[in-house]
Simulated assay, not measured.
Amino acid sequence: MYEERASRLDGAVVWTRTVDRRAGDVHPVLPDGCMDLLWADGRLLVAGPDTHAHTAGELPATRYVGVRFAPGTAPAFLGVPAHELRDRRVELADVWGAAEARRLTDRIDAAADPVAELEAVALRRADRVEPPDPLLSEVVRRLEAGGTVAGAAEAVGLGARQLHRRSLSAFGYGPKTLARVLRLQRALTLVRAGVPYAEVALGAGCADQAHLAREMRDLAGITLGAYAALANRETPQPSGSRTTA
């Protein structure tokens, strides 16, 4: 079972998932441009930005709690460029040090409400770090709305090379990849709403249904039909909730 709510941390989402592996409770984790701070059965981890789907077996836990950060906001919080964590799940100890990770893990393990405690960890940390780059937040806003990379770069006054370099640090990959990932997420939202695939393709910004099918294969690793079947069985968790259950 998956649940989420808006976090008190600006732009973030707090989510939980309980996995019943005996019942075949498995969902692919799809790219969404986000990064997560995870508590998984007593382990604290960081999930980096994805460029492809992740599948079962990476984190064999049954109970997960996560704080999902909006695209571009986690690197300042973590103190690590996003490209160093691209397509990776790493122990928090590798990012903040073993002593700090153990202290926080013990606190969350002992909490009556691990969800609230993990969010509190994120809030305390956020108060001590620099805010995200406002130019890149504007880039995300424009790309989420279906704008072009060139248009976003022009709007924020960055050249192509400057935008690419800053995007690697903030998003884990270049702006063109981010645009593809955000377009995929627009498409998945429409699929979950039951919109016909041809309309999904146009609504998300793909050239046609064949283009959307290729993007699903390349980024999600599944077909539109397979994703729709998952959506009908149980609303899949947003890909940022990287339980890889």
Rank of each mutant, 00 (worst) to 15 (best):
A152D: 13
L168N: 10
Q185A: 00
E154K: 12
A152W: 05
L158G: 11
T177F: 11
R180G: 07
A152R: 02
L168Q: 10
A155F: 00
F171N: 02
L178W: 00
T189V: 12
G151I: 13
V156A: 08
R161L: 09
E154F: 01
K176S: 13
A155M: 04
F171Y: 10
Q185I: 06
G151P: 06
G174E: 08
V156H: 05
A170M: 13
V181M: 07
E154T: 15
R166F: 11
H164W: 03
V181G: 12
P175H: 02
A155N: 02
L163S: 08
Q162G: 15
S167H: 04
L184M: 11
R165W: 09
L188F: 04
A153T: 06
R165N: 10
H164D: 12
S167F: 02
V156R: 14
Y173G: 02
G159M: 07
H164N: 12
T177L: 11
E154V: 12
S167E: 09
A155T: 03
A160V: 12
A153W: 04
L188H: 01
R183E: 00
L182Y: 05
A153M: 08
A170C: 08
A155S: 02
E154C: 06
H164V: 13
E154L: 13
R186E: 01
R166Q: 15
A152Y: 06
L168S: 07
T177Y: 14
R165I: 01
K176W: 01
R166H: 14
R161D: 15
Q185H: 05
S167W: 00
A155V: 02
Q185C: 06
L184G: 08
L158T: 11
Q162H: 14
R186S: 00
Y173N: 00
A153G: 13
L168W: 14
A187P: 01
R180L: 06
A179G: 04
F171L: 07
V181Q: 05
Q162M: 12
T189R: 09
Y173H: 06
L158R: 13
L158A: 03
Q185M: 06
V156T: 07
L184Y: 04
A170N: 10
G151N: 03
V156Q: 05
Q185W: 10
T189F: 11
A179V: 08
G172A: 05
R180F: 03
G151F: 06
L182N: 08
G159P: 01
S169C: 15
L168A: 10
V181D: 08
G151H: 04
K176A: 07
V181P: 14
L163K: 06
V156P: 01
S167G: 10
R166P: 10
L188D: 01
L182C: 09
S169Q: 14
E154R: 09
R165Y: 07
R161M: 13
G157F: 09
A152P: 11
R161G: 08
H164T: 09
G172H: 10
K176L: 10
R183P: 01
Q185L: 07
A155C: 02
E154A: 14
Y173W: 13
F171P: 02
A152C: 13
G172K: 00
T189S: 15
K176Q: 12
A155Q: 05
Q185G: 11
A153C: 11
A155H: 04
A153F: 04
Q185R: 07
K176T: 09
L182E: 03
Y173V: 10
G157C: 07
A179Y: 09
A160L: 13
L182V: 01
